[in-house]
Amino acid sequence: MAQFLSTYFLVLLSAQLVKSSGVFELKVHSFTTSSSDVCKQSRDCQFFFRVCLNYTDNVISYRLACSNGTGLTGTMSTDQSSISTSEPITLPFKLKWLGTAAVIIEAWNAESSNDHPTEALNNMIGHFATKINLTIGQKWSQDVHLGEQSELCIGYRVVCDKFYYGDECSDFCRSRDDPYGHFTCDDTGSRICLPEWKGEYCAEPICSSGCSEEHGYCEAPSQCKCFFGWQGPRCDECTPYPGCLHGTCVRPWQCTCKKGWGGLLCNKDLNV
């Protein structure tokens, strides 16, 4: 096969990874090679791609351990001169995104649809390694890499996983409405309290209007429960001494007699 052009993949990781804080996405727009032994002259050319992500500056060796994720496409068959698709390969990562990473992209010849011979290096038909400097965002970066007998055109980006925000995808916010919080999240991951709730985690109810902040509290929105020694709809009335008949109070348990009354319980008529 004098000229072989094959491209691209639709992929998910073959196994479920630990919950990530972000996702590295990579598209292979085209992969072209002129190697004469590609797919061993087979009419039914089977191939797949492997993508490796590392938080390191070393992009020289394809034998680097994929410390921050590996993505494999399924085995593909093609005899076309050009193939393209918009679906990316995704590599979730758990650690904070540091902005710099090494990306290794490999194209492999597969002898059957179930064969991923990653250890048989003679089956590798293309290898590209690059260092990227990338900030979190929806915009795709584009790049072209030239090998001895091949060319690779790619696009890539880093986006935060669902519920994660910030420049490092390390700020977590997930809307909830339960005893542990009552809030939604805005586009930056900040908590927005639901109506009638307040506090850092929106777990504090807003009491009824006028409820004394000093002498009242609430366990649910629009309530006004009084602390011991206080009473009234707004908990702004002191509770007089028990049995106080014709007296008032400024603080709880007082019994200050009204004019014309006396005694401990203000029950003696001084006018008699």
Score class of each variant (00 low, 15 high):
54 N>H: 03
87 E>F: 13
43 R>H: 09
78 T>E: 02
41 Q>M: 06
98 L>K: 15
87 E>R: 12
82 S>R: 11
73 T>L: 04
61 S>D: 14
57 D>L: 13
98 L>C: 03
104 I>K: 05
37 D>I: 09
61 S>I: 03
89 I>Y: 02
86 S>C: 00
49 F>Y: 15
70 T>G: 00
76 M>T: 04
39 C>V: 02
76 M>W: 00
83 I>H: 08
64 L>R: 10
50 R>Q: 14
65 A>T: 05
85 T>H: 00
55 Y>M: 09
39 C>G: 06
98 L>I: 13
79 D>I: 02
75 T>G: 07
86 S>L: 05
78 T>P: 02
68 N>W: 02
42 S>L: 13
54 N>L: 05
85 T>A: 03
77 S>A: 02
74 G>Q: 08
56 T>Y: 04
41 Q>I: 00
93 F>W: 07
42 S>G: 12
103 V>F: 04
61 S>W: 06
94 K>M: 10
52 C>G: 06
95 L>S: 15
98 L>P: 15
37 D>E: 13
59 V>C: 15
80 Q>L: 11
65 A>E: 08
92 P>W: 03
76 M>Y: 03
40 K>H: 11
66 C>P: 09
99 G>Q: 09
70 T>C: 03
61 S>E: 09
63 R>T: 08
81 S>Q: 08
59 V>Y: 13
84 S>T: 14
45 C>I: 02
84 S>Y: 12
85 T>M: 01
68 N>P: 01
85 T>L: 03
52 C>L: 10
